[in-house]
Design a protein around this nucleic acid. Sequence first.
DNA 1: TAGTGCTTCCGTACGTTGTACCGTACGTAA
DNA 2: TTACGTACGGTACAACGTACGGAAGCACTA
Lengths: 253, 253
Amino acid sequence: MSGKKVPDMDMARSLALLWGSHTKPGRSGLTVRAIVEAAIGIADAEGLDALSMRHVAERLGVGTMSLYTHVPGKTELTDLMIDAAYGELYRDVDEPSAQPDGWRGALEFVAARNWDLYRRHPWMLQLVTPRPVLGPNASLKYEAELRPLDGIGLSDVEMDSVLALVLTHVEGTARVRAGLDQIEQATGMNETEWWLASAPVLDKVMDASRFPVASRVGTAAGQEHQGASDPAHALAFGLARILDGVADLIAGR
Amino acid sequence: MSGKKVPDMDMARSLALLWGSHTKPGRSGLTVRAIVEAAIGIADAEGLDALSMRHVAERLGVGTMSLYTHVPGKTELTDLMIDAAYGELYRDVDEPSAQPDGWRGALEFVAARNWDLYRRHPWMLQLVTPRPVLGPNASLKYEAELRPLDGIGLSDVEMDSVLALVLTHVEGTARVRAGLDQIEQATGMNETEWWLASAPVLDKVMDASRFPVASRVGTAAGQEHQGASDPAHALAFGLARILDGVADLIAGR
DNA sequence: TAGTGCTTCCGTACGTTGTACCGTACGTAA
DNA sequence: TTACGTACGGTACAACGTACGGAAGCACTA
């Protein structure tokens, strides 16, 4: 009952790290910023599984334990990585609301930007936590993505719900996309090749007599997407349905 | 260039395990089924992080390496866990299509069942891979969930897309829910307590002068949900919008 | 019944991981 | 020049998945 961590302390420490300006480099040039950049480089190139403190230290030409002088632990490092990545999203806070085609065009833009971000940094999908990382870029992201929804007939709570819905959809489809990429990299077999190779197995599994609808639809969808799933198509299709539903909500006022 | 695994071999082995009837217990009573059940018990109670081969063996009163006689490795074990969990979903293949209120009621039922499944087995959210686990229960799930969408004016590909959209939405919101539970268990602080405690920090982060919309909407949503997010509300709100959008698609024919 | 062989069981060991602990060595201020 | 504080990093520990090889029990045949 006593080994419990005190969240306040951790949070204060994380916040100081996230918001603290760049500390001066020590005698070996080691900086929080440099550590974060090295970590992101590794995660981008080799995946989150390859991200170890030893690996980061090695890339920086530094002893492993030296990292702990600047960063409390791996958890805080990943928080810093996430906030740094959020910084890539928008040029300025009005970029989404400046898009053409009103709130619909803006949400499509937001979806595309988040999708691209996840494609560049697929490791983010393994690190996202329900409680937001309260870094300097998270607030800006939230403001930028909310502005186009202001004054179109939604309540404040609805604005938040609509944005969350779109972001959850993008995250879900991006996760599938990232998973496919990871499998392809691991096995050297892309989705289409896999689908073609496992067609006979799928036919047996999807027994047409026991599962008539599944076998028919599965075959049609497989042919269309040349694989078990097509995340890019799912993103577009789902977003269109969601935005139609939001339009209904607004029109119902 | 030679250490690459041959997917076909792995797949054949996995399929044999998934579909193979229960092998007879050896001289210590060890069975694939028993191993899977023990693993699920651990993952349910202590989370996926606590699921180790040593732990499973300990629970069964068996040497760690004995497990490898019955299961090739941890990856295959988790595949078996997932398929076993899918078996809990539906009483029979017509349960979703027998729901009242047509395709809409059926999809709401499907969403609720998947949501409940993820609440019972939150570890599934950390294991789901884009390529389906081709076990005996996956096909049944697919058929059961597709049937209510048959003959309502959607093409085959659209049926698959609509189902995938709903399932992705449920998975995304359930992931948030599971994340909150995990944090609460780790810190002993529930979402509302955390939100109340970090209100001053949030006020500073969401500077009302720089981020007027974010601070206003964030406050409203926070008050409404008594926390940074409310997955159950997000599930219902999002599903309503999605189903409205699907209705538009059908009506547009 | 004795022998033979196959399968099941499992102890040991290796290479990983995050990080606690503590000694060393350097840059800066007095 | 001396002294202090901080940055650096070597070693060590517990936990992980699992390769390897020995030991032991069961089902057969002779």
